[in-house]
Computed example of a mutant assay.
Amino acid sequence: MDLRRTARRRRSHRLDPADLRLGDYVQRTVGLKDRLGKPLEAPTKAGQITALRTFFRDCREWEWLPRRFDPLRALAIPRSITALLGPDPRVIADEIWAKLLWAGLNLDPADLPQTRSGHFYPFELVRAVTLTCRGGRARPGRSR
Score class of each variant (00 low, 15 high):
residue 137 R to F: 01
residue 70 D to C: 11
residue 14 R to C: 06
residue 3 L to A: 10
residue 144 R to H: 09
residue 59 C to D: 09
residue 142 R to T: 13
residue 122 P to Q: 08
residue 68 R to P: 00
residue 136 G to V: 00
residue 109 P to H: 07
residue 49 I to G: 10
residue 100 L to T: 09
residue 143 S to E: 12
residue 35 R to F: 08
residue 107 L to V: 02
residue 130 T to E: 03
residue 94 D to L: 05
residue 29 T to W: 07
residue 99 K to S: 07
residue 83 A to R: 15
residue 22 L to E: 05
residue 142 R to Y: 11
residue 118 G to K: 12
residue 39 P to D: 02
residue 112 L to A: 04
residue 141 G to V: 12
residue 65 L to Q: 05
residue 63 E to R: 12
residue 26 V to N: 03
residue 129 V to Y: 13
residue 89 P to D: 07
residue 50 T to K: 15
residue 144 R to M: 10
residue 103 A to E: 13
residue 66 P to G: 05
residue 27 Q to R: 14
residue 69 F to S: 01
residue 97 W to K: 06
residue 40 L to M: 14
residue 47 G to K: 08
residue 132 T to F: 01
residue 36 L to I: 04
residue 76 A to E: 13
residue 111 D to N: 14
residue 136 G to M: 00
residue 119 H to T: 10
residue 41 E to K: 14
residue 121 Y to M: 01
residue 53 R to L: 06
residue 3 L to S: 03
residue 5 R to H: 06
residue 28 R to I: 07
residue 134 R to P: 00
residue 144 R to Y: 07
residue 127 R to H: 11
residue 52 L to F: 14
residue 54 T to N: 12
residue 51 A to D: 12
residue 70 D to N: 15
residue 19 D to R: 07
residue 96 I to L: 15
residue 104 G to P: 02
residue 130 T to H: 02
residue 63 E to D: 12
residue 53 R to I: 06
residue 45 K to C: 11
residue 104 G to R: 07
residue 97 W to N: 12
residue 25 Y to W: 12
residue 11 R to H: 07
residue 20 L to G: 01
residue 4 R to I: 02
residue 28 R to W: 06
residue 90 R to L: 12
residue 97 W to H: 15
residue 94 D to I: 03
residue 126 V to Q: 01
residue 54 T to E: 03
residue 117 S to H: 13
residue 44 T to D: 07
residue 98 A to N: 14
residue 98 A to P: 04
residue 52 L to K: 04
residue 27 Q to G: 13
residue 6 T to R: 13
residue 26 V to E: 13
residue 74 A to C: 02
